[in-house]
């Protein structure tokens, strides 16, 4: 089997969210001497691009997105050690600290964003829901994050987004990070009011916005 055929097979296995087929194709490609980074760039990522488009067009939904992400992560668990061994680690697109503000228990939008970030090549630290504002800041400092992405669904929890920015300003570290906000109750006007670097109405928009901000 030629490399092009292998990449097409791998791409299709991701589109089919078939973890076994993804792993089988990855191993076949490695056995054929294909570089791990080439496998990612020419097989896995094109498949994930299709998944992202299908999700955006509502041809597939969160469960399928999660299955594709799991298949991708399984492949990466095989490929990443080999990339490290070769000493040929390229830069990630960026480091994201993500979470839903304190007092807010909503998770689905944040979970979708996490998956889209991961499958778009970002490193993500998901702090979960009901997150203390200083946890955002401490984790961003610890991992030297590029972006802090903060979700809030409720009108009564919006202030949690403002508080993260205010605390960063108080600490003199506001300019170290790009801050983007989203969630059901948020708007561009609110983002402007609190001095966020950007607002996204959907997870897909958030990934595009983040890509622009870190480039």
């Amino acid at each position: 089997m030629g490399h092009e055929e292998l990449f097409a097979q791998l791409k299709q296995a991701i589109i089919d969210q078939d973890e076994d087929a993804v792993l089988s194709s990855v191993n076949t490609a490695l056995d054929a001497g294909v570089e791990p980074k080439t496998i990612i760039d020419q097989g896995l990522l094109p498949g994930l691009n299709v998944i992202g488009e299908q999700f955006e067009c509502e041809d597939i939904f969160l469960p399928e997105l999660m299955q594709a992400a799991l298949a991708f992560q399984a492949a990466m668990s095989v490929l990443e050690p080999k990339i490290k061994e070769s000493g040929n680690e390229g830069p990630k697109k960026g480091k994201i600290v993500l979470g839903t503000v304190k007092g807010d228990l909503h998770s689905i939008g944040k979970n979708i964003l996490k998956l889209l970030y991961e499958t778009s090549g970002f490193d993500v630290w998901d702090l979960g829901i009901d997150v203390d504002l200083f946890k955002f800041i401490d984790k961003a400092k610890e991992v030297d994050a590029d972006v802090i992405a903060i979700s809030a669904l409720l009108t009564t929890t919006l202030v949690g987004q403002r508080d993260v920015i205010e605390a960063l300003k108080d600490q003199g570290t506001r300019d170290r990070y790009k801050i983007i906000i989203g969630g059901g109750a948020t708007t561009q006007v609110w983002a402007d009011t609190i001095g966020a670097d950007g607002w996204a109405g959907t997870a897909y928009e958030a990934v595009n916005l983040t890509t622009k901000l870190v480039s």
Partner: peptide, 14 residues
């Protein structure tokens, strides 16, 4: 409707 402000400031959750 909801009216969240107390003395001009929105009440935060909890």
């Amino acid at each position: 409707p909801s009216i969240l402000h107390i003395r001009g400031t929105d009440a935060r959750v909890r």
